[in-house]
Amino acid sequence: MIQFLQKLGAKTLNRVAAVGRAGQLLSQSLIAKPAPMMMLPLLIRQLYFIGVLSLVIIIVSGLFIGMVLGLQGYTILVDYGSEQAVGQMVALSLVRELAPVVTALLFAGRAGSAVTAEIGLMKATEQLACYEMIGVDPMRRIIAPRLWAGFISMPLLSMIFAIVGIWGGSLVAVDWLGIFSGSFWANMQASVSFSEDVLNGVIKSLVFGFVVIWIAVFQGNDCVPTSEGISQATTRTVVYSSLAILGLDFLLTAMMFGDF
C-alpha cells in the first residue's frame, strides 16, 4: 500500500515536472529573440517537411470523408424528403468538426511523430549538444522553426481538408445522386455562417496545431536518447496528441457553440 502510494506520488511528480519542462521549452524557443534572416529559410524547410508532405494524406482523407458524408447524409435525409439539406449537413459537419479534428489527428500521426523521432535522434546522436557547444541555441535553431511551421501549417491543411471534403460531398450528392446543384449550394450557404462556423473551425485548427506540435517537439527533446526511448516518445506523441485533440475539441465546441 505504502509502495503504491509512493509510486503514485512519484508518477504524479514526474508528470508535473514534465509539464514544467514543456512550458520552459516553449518559452525558451518562442520568447528568445528571433533572428529573422536566419529563421526564414529554416522555417520554409520545416513548412515543407511538416506542411507540404502532409498534403497528400490530408487531401485523400478529406475527399473520402466528404464523399461518405454525402452518401450517408443522402440516405438518411431522403427518408424525410429533405435530401436538399445534404449540402448543409456535409458543410457544417466538415467545417465545424471533422476538418479540424481529423486533420489534427492525421497531422499528429504524419508530422508530429516525424518531428519527435527526428529531434529524438538528434539528441541521441549528440547533434543537439553539438549545436549548444558551437554556441547555437537548439531551442531557436531546431525547436522554434518546427513549432512555427506546425502552427502555420495546421490551419492551412484543415481548410484544404474542408474544401476538398465539401467538393467530395457535392460530387456524390449532385453528380452521382442527382440532387439539384442550386439547392445543394444554396442550402449550404444559407446555413453556414462565416463568422461562426468557418472562423470557429479555423480557431480550433490553430489550437490543435499548436498543441500537437508542442507535444511533438517536447517529446523529442525530452526523450531518453536511445532507440527504445525514441520509439516510446514517438508513441507518446501520437497518443497524447490524439487525446488532447479530442478533449480540447469538446471544450472548444462547448465554448463556441454551447449556450454559455
Binding site: A91, M159, A162, I163, M188, Q189, F194, D197, V198
Partner: peptide, 11 residues
C-alpha cells in the same frame, strides 16, 4: 481554401 469557404460555402 479560406476564400472558397467564405464565398462558396458560407455565402
Amino acid at each position: 481554401a479560406l476564400v472558397a469557404l467564405a464565398i462558396n460555402v458560407s455565402g
